[in-house]
Design a binder for these strands. Structure first.
Lengths: 247, 247
DNA sequence: CACAAAAGTGAGCACCGCTCTTGCTTCCTC
DNA sequence: GAGGAAGCAAGAGCGGTGCTCACTTTTGTG
């Protein structure tokens, strides 16, 4: 506890110490817990996720789970990070698979992939884009994974802006442009003009609104419920919203 | 239990029987319960809403609450209906207060009012536009109140379409237009063309996406967090999205 | 006034998150 | 290699939840 009491090697930096058998067991059990947690999340949703049920599933007594997970909220945080990473990866993959296509086509492909991911992982989607769980406050660890998806969209728009694909860049008020100060400061190489950024964020929120409406039942009895209808409707929404950024 | 066993007056239809003292007491206590529920919802959010806590607040033993509310889910349904009505009324009031203004100005006023309501009632907002609560399925009673808000928007757009205010009506694919069959059938006097309807629904989802993003923290560190900045940013989003419907 | 319906009570069930004590095993360090 | 520290599993337990049930009390009415 005293100042300079601890030798350097015992401090926070782990000098590639070989993993012991216990370490491997711990990693394995932790993975088992996370798998069970993912399964339960997929079945019952975030609100009903139960540490006790997870413990039962991995054959543990309920209190033992706390050796691996500090709390239910911490588990949820892990799942949130996983979900952000998964949806971000889905967007990145979609973009990579059409990297040669035009910007509007990339935009469409990426948003279709995002919607597809949301439809196949509704509870994970709700976890990150639904209402925050009761007393939950997003820790810092989630911001980096949460950035992956919007980054893909920004990349597409930036490329389109650079090669002149964007026809009519939108115009927004000076006041609205100034509101992006925190973003422009935190993202180093952000040379897009701010009107385009406001429009980009608007499309981002708009299409997540569309996905949320579909997933949360707000277009029930409004849009035909067959999968093809829903897909066609979302395609139309993509095209409409794409105009906001001039695509 | 036998067929024709019960005399007509005892059947389901209440023939304007004057309310007894007990009826009034029941209505009063029910109102007390709903008030306590609203307060608790505003404080802790839908997920943590507790019947026992509500019972404590109104000075009841926990089991007595079930004489007035059949279950927690039923209470939530009531609160959902109230929330739909409240946000719908906010939209209607805003529209009524600017009924003489132009369609774009009405559009702005209504959406500003919706956002304002959401900011002052975040938990009620999350209740209806966030992720649905765990095992919850929206009963039929909620659809009518849920219609009030979109109806306001449709009215504005229909009026703008009728008097020629809408400059460039958007075009969407035939396939997307056909997806609106259920809506056109269920809403009797809906003479808007379907492209405009698709665009209208898109703006609807888009701006709720914007509000949800703000409320659920997705533009944290992106848009400056001062209330005036957020308002200016939302105004810009309104204007951008309004173009989708040609306003 | 008597009686039935409604309202209120308290115990109890099964579940939850989480804590703490108690043994046991594994690992690290002399 | 021995000893001690650290990690791990187990079980009991606390206070909370939704909800049910048998029971008593209140209350309106024929």
């Amino acid at each position: 506890m005293g100042v300079m009491a601890s030798p350097p090697r015992s401090s926070a930096a782990p000098p590639t110490r070989p993993p012991t058998a216990r370490d491997r067991a711990r990693a394995e059990i932790t993975a088992e817990i996370m798998t069970a947690a993912r399964e339960q999340l997929a079945e019952v949703g975030p609100g009903s996720l139960s540490l006790r049920a997870i413990a039962r599933e991995v054959g543990m007594v309920s209190s033992a789970i706390y050796r691996y997970v500090p709390s239910r909220d911490a588990l949820l945080t892990r799942l949130i990070i996983e979900a952000y990473d998964a949806i971000g990866a889905a967007a990145e993959d979609a973009q990579a698979s059409v990297a040669a296509a035009s910007a509007p086509e990339q935009f469409r492909a990426v948003w279709r992939a995002i919607r597809a991911w949301a439809l196949t992982n509704p509870h994970q989607y709700a976890l990150i884009y639904g209402s925050p769980v009761p007393g939950y406050r997003a820790p810092v660890d989630t911001v980096a994974p949460a950035t992956r998806l919007p980054q893909v969209l920004l990349n597409i728009l930036a490329a389109a802006g650079a090669d002149g694909t964007i026809a009519a860049p939108p115009v927004v008020s000076e006041a609205a442009q100034r509101t992006l100060d925190p973003m422009v400061e935190s993202v180093p190489d952000l040379d897009a003009d701010r009107s385009a950024l406001v429009a980009a964020i608007t499309t981002w929120a708009a299409l997540f609104g569309a996905i949320s409406f579909e997933l949360f039942g707000h277009i029930h009895n409004v849009v035909a419920s067959e999968p093809e209808s829903r897909a066609a409707f979302f395609d139309a929404q993509i095209d409409l919203v794409a105009r906001l950024v001039g695509l």
